[in-house]
Design a protein around this nucleic acid. Structure first.
Length: 868
RNA sequence: GCGAGAGUGGCGGAAUUGGUAGACGCGCUAGAUUUAGGUUCUAGUGUCUUGCGGCGUGAGAGUUCGAGUCUCUCCUCUCGCACCA
């Protein structure tokens, strides 16, 4: 009597067992090698999306694989619970952000459990809990004591109608998303942490991160943006009291080509001049009307206005006009740049537009002409540069920098693109910044942790409720005990996500931020998350780790040894234009496709027969209505199928296209696997799943038995390799191939060896698939596995003797084109193979009339006969 | 604009890292079984010729006996750009 595969029943049963036996509880153990596997924790937005499912399945596969290798695995999960969406939801639903967040966590935790992830749930926490954020408040005050925290004015997006600060995300086409008002830049005082003090180390230690993708390391290097150059002084004597202009340049060799200077709209010189220059004041005003996003600044039209004053060129002594320009960033370097239109493309375009002189001073070394109509940005030989003529760029940089330094007009300088981390947010749903202001407005660190965020609030949509909450604000000065006021800004939520990985090591600790358990588990051996975090989150976490080290909380230098950046989850989009000419999107679940004879898509229709346009594959999103709810897939197929599909459809670091037919295929495979075991249930129950104990006994068995063993062990070899390189799609493909081979095997022809060979193949299948589809494999193991050992107690090994072949297939090419295949004895000599290849009749045909020039033999692979 | 990736059948992808392009799966075609459905099984499936063979990994060049893989130029798409997380 065969049973049907019932994933829902198997999965709940197995999950219950895992829970009862505390199967994934992590306990420090100095005897076993530790492995800390971590996925980026989710923002509790309401329910899991496919990106989460993919991220956490990858992490679970790695965790379970490492567990099977015998390691002591820590695999925690928690919630990145502070953030903007909770405030928006609170305004919309008239609930407090805390309750909304808690409800979402509840819901998503249930979904994660249903997917069977091997988390140690005892370590779970949410970052909005005072027991968590009190320690980052304490830590912030430690940084303050160490001089790594300071306050300065910085720009925010200001909505002049709603009178509120907007996130970049809330600025759409330069306007506030609710009010529609033109957004302005506004300066307000904010807290900063000196990440620039760690720029050099953050840059240098990237070289040690061998387990990180090169692309991420390159992005971080570029983000830090170290450049070596010179600071050059241009004297300004036309404006009373004005300071000299200091500019940073990476190309001091081009200094004689400077034809103007440009300062940011906010530069003190521009501010001073604008006082009695209305046109310039207007221009400055115009520059304020934009968002603070760099992408916006860089893509807007480059505009400028002359200040009407000149600066003195430090070498030639000539007068150079000073301009105010919207593309000069006050936050990079000194807020002023020297412009060399002949050798910088942006300067060139600006100079052309405003008819400023272009003076070439660098020329190609080979004496050729520089291309016309654009800047010549290469290195070369100096000309038109007075005493520096004839020097090469590289040498000239040093000579000119020294020349300036000797005269007090400049010096060599290293500059970073990286800016200090502004951590102040004028929002409610975040961790309160633990600072207290005395009556004179002087700030001191709080000492009463946690500085608890009041959760009983009403969001009115205009500003943070704690900003007018006296019970929160009014306090006493920690030293003088005089009346004082609390800071009402909260931390950037990157603050919480910068150290959560460490807190998982000791989530219950109530006397300190971290203890020795952190040194036991850290660094994280495998970190997994979206590529969109390549720079910011990962850089802040690296920074925080080094800070925690320097405060004495940790021993290691870096938080994450290996990093896997997963691709996004995409799906086909379908739309049609509605009456108002806007695209109306339809969910792929509502669309049926019409195919031609070759399987190509001809048309897409809704259930009512009306046709819709095919919009192309895009990232799953609400706006494109192409999301697939993981819950519906779990309900339909079970967790193992969802896990199998997400692993099989694409390698982890590439984008994954969702396909409803293909997930049905994954389900079909598990059913086939189930049926395979059902079909052989008597044999398997008797011999039990096991590798072959004595491979030498297999030397003289029937060739069919040997053939299946060859498949089993070739597949094992591939699966081992692919687990190691984290290419799980081919791990699944290998298991499918082995399943195909077992299904087709001729058991009668194997004779006595049949049951042992079957047992070995099925054992291999269960082991290979356990990390991916743990529920089914656990069930099969409990029914057919050896009783003495658990499923995770041993991993697979390859029996080399099973891989030995008597004969090898050689490919024979003539001039690189395939002309024959030869079955050659494995022991054959090179000369013998060459002769066989040349003797082949088809090869002969293509060699006819040609002279053989060369014969290349690649052992066990191919012969290429070169002839003409 | 700047920085980083990716382009292989109708589709997702594979290719032991310079050596048979298309594993595995989806879709499609034909057949069988069940017999109404999105069941299961068998065979086929890059393309043009349907004989041998020619062509084929975004486009174009180059290196090599040999290139999806290495080099250069170009095109398209995706991600990030400091207050979304």
């Amino acid at each position: 009597m065969q049973q049907d595969y019932d994933p829902q029943q198997i999965e709940t049963q197995v999950q219950q067992q895992w829970q009862d036996t505390e199967a994934f509880k992590a306990v420090e153990d100095s005897e076993k090698e530790k492995f800390y596997c971590l996925e980026m924790f989710p923002y509790p937005s309401g329910k899991l999306h496919m990106g989460h499912v993919r991220n956490y399945t990858i992490g679970d596969v790695i965790s379970r694989y490492q567990r099977m290798l015998g390691k002591n695995v820590l695999h925690p999960m928690g919630w990145d619970a502070f953030g903007l969406p909770a405030e928006n939801a609170a305004i919309e639903n008239k609930t407090a952000p805390a309750a909304w967040t808690e409800q979402n966590i509840e819901n998503m935790r249930g979904q994660l459990k249903r997917l069977g992830f091997s988390y140690d749930w005892d370590r779970e926490f949410a970052t909005c809990e005072p027991d968590y954020y009190r320690w980052e408040q304490w830590f912030f005050t430690q940084l303050y004591e160490r001089g790594l925290v300071y306050k300065k004015e910085a720009e925010v997006n200001w909505d002049p109608v709603d009178q509120t600060v907007l996130a970049n995300e809330q600025v759409v086409d330069g306007r506030g998303w609710r009010s529609g008002a033109l957004v302005e830049k506004k300066k307000i005082p904010q807290w900063f942490i000196k990440i620039t003090a760690y720029a050099e180390e953050l840059l240098a230690s990237l070289d040690d991160l061998e387990g990180w993708p090169d692309s991420v390391k390159t992005m971080q290097r570029n983000w830090i943006g170290k450049s070596v150059g010179a600071e050059v002084v241009f004297k300004v004597d036309q404006v009373a009291g004005a300071e000299d202009l200091r500019v940073f340049t990476t190309r001091p060799d081009t200094i004689m080509g400077v034809t103007y200077l440009a300062v940011a709209a906010d530069h003190p010189l521009a501010v001073a001049v604008a006082e009695d220059n209305p046109a310039l004041a207007d221009f400055r005003q115009q520059c304020q009307q934009t968002s603070t996003a760099e992408a916006d600044l860089e893509t807007m039209e480059k505009l400028g206005m002359p200040l009407g004053i000149n600066a003195v060129h430090p070498v030639s002594g000539e007068e150079v006009p000073v301009w105010c320009a919207n593309f000069v960033l006050m936050t990079y370097g000194t807020g002023a740049v020297m412009a060399v239109p002949a050798h910088d493309q942006r300067d060139y375009e600006f100079a052309s537009k405003y008819e400023i002189a272009i003076k070439p001073v660098i020329f190609p070394e080979d004496g050729s002409d520089a291309p016309a109509g654009e800047a010549y940005t290469e290195y070369g030989v100096l000309g038109n540069s007075g005493e520096f003529d004839g020097l090469e760029s590289e040498a000239a940089k040093e000579v000119i920098t020294n020349w300036l330094a000797e005269r007090g007009l400049g010096e060599e300088q290293v500059n970073y693109r990286l800016r200090d981390w502004g951590v102040s947010r004028q929002r409610y749903w975040g961790c309160p910044i633990p600072m207290i202001y005395d009556e004179a407005g002087e700030a001191v660190p709080a000492t009463d942790f946690p500085v608890e965020l009041p959760t009983d609030v009403v969001m009115d949509g205009v500003g943070s409720p704690i900003k007018k909450m006296a019970s929160f604000i009014d306090t006493l000065h920690p030293q003088t005990q005089q009346p004082a006021q609390r800071e009402t800004d909260t931390f950037d939520t990157f603050f919480e996500s910068s150290w959560y990985y460490a807190r998982y090591c000791c989530p219950d600790l109530d006397t300190a931020m971290l203890d020795q358990r952190a040194n036991h588990w850290l660094p994280v051996d495998q970190y997994i998350g979206g590529i969109e975090h390549a720079v910011m989150h990962l850089l802040y976490a690296r920074f925080f780790h080094k800070l925690m080290r320097d405060v004495g909380l940790l021993d290691s230098n870096e938080p994450f040894t290996n990093l896997l950046t997963q691709g996004m989850v995409t799906a086909e989009t379908y739309y049609r234009f509605n009456e108002s000419g806007k695209r109306e999107f339809f969910n792929p679940a509502e669309v049926e496709l019409e195919h031609d004879d070759k399987g190509g898509v001809l048309a897409a229709r809704l259930a009512d027969g009306s046709s819709v346009e095919i919009g192309g594959v895009e990232k799953m999103s609400k706006s494109k209505n192409n999301g697939v709810d993981p819950q519906s897939m779990i309900d339909l197929y079970g967790a193992d199928t969802v896990r199998l599909f997400t692993m099989f459809a694409a390698p982890p670091d590439q984008s994954l296209e969702w396909n409803d037919d293909a997930i049905a295929g994954a389900s079909r495979f598990l059913r086939r696997l189930w049926n395979l075991f059902e079909q052989h249930k008597e044999t398997l129950a008797e011999v039990r799943l096991a590798p072959i104990a004595d491979p030498t006994a297999m030397q003289n068995v029937a060739r069919e038995a040997k053939a299946l063993r060859l498949v089993t062990h070739t597949i094992t070899q591939r699966a081992l390799r692919d687990y190691e390189r984290k290419q799980f799609n081919t791990v699944v493909a290998a298991a499918m191939e082995l399943t195909n081979a077992v299904e087709k095997a001729d058991w009668n022809a194997m004779g006595d060896a049949a049951s042992a060979v079957l047992s070995e193949a099925c054992y291999t299948l269960v082991k290979i698939l356990t990390p991916v589809t743990p529920h089914l494999c656990e069930y099969l193991w409990q029914h057919y596995g050896t009783q003495e050992r658990g499923l995770n107690d041993a991993w697979l090994s390859v029996d080399e003797s099973a891989l030995e072949k008597d004969e090898v297939t050689y490919v024979v090419q003539v001039n690189g084109k395939l002309r024959a295949k030869l079955l050659v004895a494995a022991s054959a000599e090179k000369a013998e193979i060459e002769a066989m290849a040349q003797a082949d009749s088809n090869v002969q045909r293509f060699l006819n009339g040609l002279t053989i020039r060369k014969v290349i033999v690649v052992p066990n692979k191919l012969v290429n006969i070169v002839a003409n």
